[in-house]
Amino acid sequence: MPVIDYKVPQSVDDAVSLLEANENAKILAGGTDLIIQSRAQSSPDLVVVDLKSLPDFVSANINSEGLSLGPSMSCAEFTAREDIKSLFPGLVEAAFLIGSTQVQGRASIGGNLCNASPAADTIPALMVNNALCVIQGPKGERRVSVEDFVTGVASNCMAKNELLKAILVATPASRTSDAYLRFIPRSEMDIAVAGAAVSVTLETDGTCSKAIVAIGAVAPTAILVDAAAKALIGSKLDETSLQAAADAASAASNPITDRRGTAEFRRHVVGVLVKRAALIAAKRAGDK
């Protein structure tokens, strides 16, 4: 009997105390991963802690600094926000790609991040936007980058008595934008076989002055590929530099063969995605 109790805390502190008090307490965000995982035979008896009744956890605010995102806000609500979309189109498209309309109605970026699947769509998109995770524990809060937050396949850096309180994403610099692409066999519903997020900053003449490239589903965690970013920086994103970025991404990847694709295929396709995402990000940055 995996889910043995259900708790609705009245405050963040209350939630942290629940985590401390219960051996197998788990935060229920959208539930689209947790409820399925709880059905596995190996699952321990869970006490689920639902934070969706706390307003800060299900809302997103934009101020002069940038976006402060409640980790349990549904992807459906998140992706409908035009203000967020205009700032972080790549992050929004990553969130939009998670599952069906029905799954979007429940799934959240915080859940996607904490679940830390190697194939999570929003993680590379958060990484190229230098997002920060605000973690609340019994002794207060701490902030870590997304790459430090995700520590391995399905694991994150939080202690048992910590929870993700917010995700902060700074407003992009001028002429900077992002894009996220993933490869799936069908047009929807699948888990990413490979994913790539790219953020670029363009000079007025179209030269790329800054770039960040992150790839997903091709290693135990999403990874930043500096070599790919370097290949783009200083170029006008011509075919040669794009191909160099693609090759760098392929080289940096360390994929597995499974029911979703072969290692060989993933390594190749992640490069293709980096190229294509870089062009989309550049178009967006140039239009700004």
């Binding site: 929807e188 519903m189 888990i191 029911r259």
Partner: peptide
């Protein structure tokens, strides 16, 4: 999709991919 021990790897609609309306 089976692994070498004959264990079915995709017993669900997530990875046994039937066509979708959007396909």
């Amino acid at each position: 999709v089976y692994n070498e021990d004959g264990i079915l790897q995709n017993p669900g609609f997530l990875d046994y991919r039937i066509p979708l309306a959007s396909d």
